[in-house]
């Protein structure tokens, strides 16, 4: 854990991620002292695995919040995607076609949100509150509300097996992190997303097609949610109608903990990954300590407030 932390504190990133890294360290110290089972390699792997779904949703959410928007429908998209996969297998499709259709379903739902927000000029908060309900309802259509089992071995392997000594899920999270990090930090698309989020008017006047960017970003968020659905359904071995319920809040919390500004224009994938880790550590640590679930909710909320406050304070002191 130490080398992991020092990697981030040595960089100039210490200013940017100072608050969140400090929170991570404090949490790790607290839980290591309280529970001998916390600071163990397998538990650390466990944390990353447990938080993998939230992390993937949070990657997509980072773009959305960066743009000054919000996507509350990701939990529901996740559930629909899981159900799409189960139905594809039920009609006898193989692994790859199912994977493609599942991701496509996420893209379609995300693009739907994006088009409504960008071209009908509806606030994304309202759009995604509505589609959160619509998509959640759609999940139950094929089975009438019952879970749908998934028997495809390759699909189940995603959530159960290792590759090069690490769970496949972790490789997927790392790969998606790398992809999103590069897309946001290194490409023209990423630059435009920051500009559009920082000042929409100025972006439009500079020839940036903000509406198109908005649709693309909601589509990315939808695809990330579909990946979340794939990871979750493969771990559970079935598609559940209430899968991912409330995950949108954890995803938003991870992005905001990681320094993404709800006002738009500010945020990084590194921050979001750290934010997701904090959420994972809190969940895991308190479970190890057998803290009742309702206390976990309270503590998680307080930690989020504290971390964001530290972050806001350190930033205002600077500027």
């Amino acid at each position: 854990m130490k080398s992991f932390v020092s990697k981030f504190t040595s960089a100039p990133a210490v200013r940017e991620y100072g608050g969140i890294v400090a929170s991570l360290i404090v949490l790790c110290v607290v839980f290591s002292v309280l529970s001998p089972r916390f600071l163990v390699f397998y538990n650390l792997l466990n944390i990353v695995q447990q938080v993998s779904v939230v992390a993937v949703l949070a990657f997509g959410m980072t773009y959305v919040i960066l743009l000054g928007e919000i996507d509350l429908s990701v939990g529901s998209i996740l559930a629909v995607a899981g159900m799409v996969a189960a139905q594809c297998f039920a009609i006898g499709l193989g692994f790859w076609p199912t994977l493609g259709l599942t991701l496509l379903s996420g893209a379609i739902m995300g693009a739907f949100n994006g088009v409504l927000a960008a071209y009908l000029l509806l606030p994304s908060f309202i759009v995604t509150v509505a589609t959160m309900g619509i998509f959640r309802g759609l999940v139950s259509l094929p089975t009438g509300g019952l879970p749908a089992p998934i028997n495809n071995d390759a699909w189940l392997a995603i959530g159960a097996e290792n590759w090069l000594g690490l769970p496949i899920i972790i490789w997927i999270v790392l790969a998606l992190f790398a992809f999103n990090f590069v897309l946001l930090a290194k490409t023209v698309f990423g630059r435009r997303a920051y500009l559009a989020g920082g000042n929409k008017e100025a972006a439009v006047y500079s020839g940036i097609r903000v509406k198109r960017i908005k649709v693309i970003i909601f589509t990315i968020s939808g695809v990330m949610a579909a990946v979340g659905g794939i990871l979750l359904s493969s771990r559970l071995g079935s598609a559940q109608t209430n899968a991912g319920l409330g995950y949108e809040l954890d995803a938003i919390a991870a992005a905001v903990l990681g320094g993404t500004s709800l006002a738009g224009g500010v945020g990084t994938m590194v921050g979001t990954l750290l934010g997701a880790l904090i959420i994972g550590i809190i969940n895991n640590g308190m479970s190890l300590l057998s803290v009742p679930y309702f206390y976990q909710l309270i503590v998680k909320g307080l930690v989020i407030l504290l971390a964001v406050w530290i972050d806001v304070r350190s930033k205002t002191n600077r500027g």
Binding site: L195, G198, N199, E201, A202, Y205
Partner: peptide
Amino acid sequence: EEGLVLAHTVER
């Protein structure tokens, strides 16, 4: 309002 993203750097 329409010219700059004030929070972003001179370079951006």
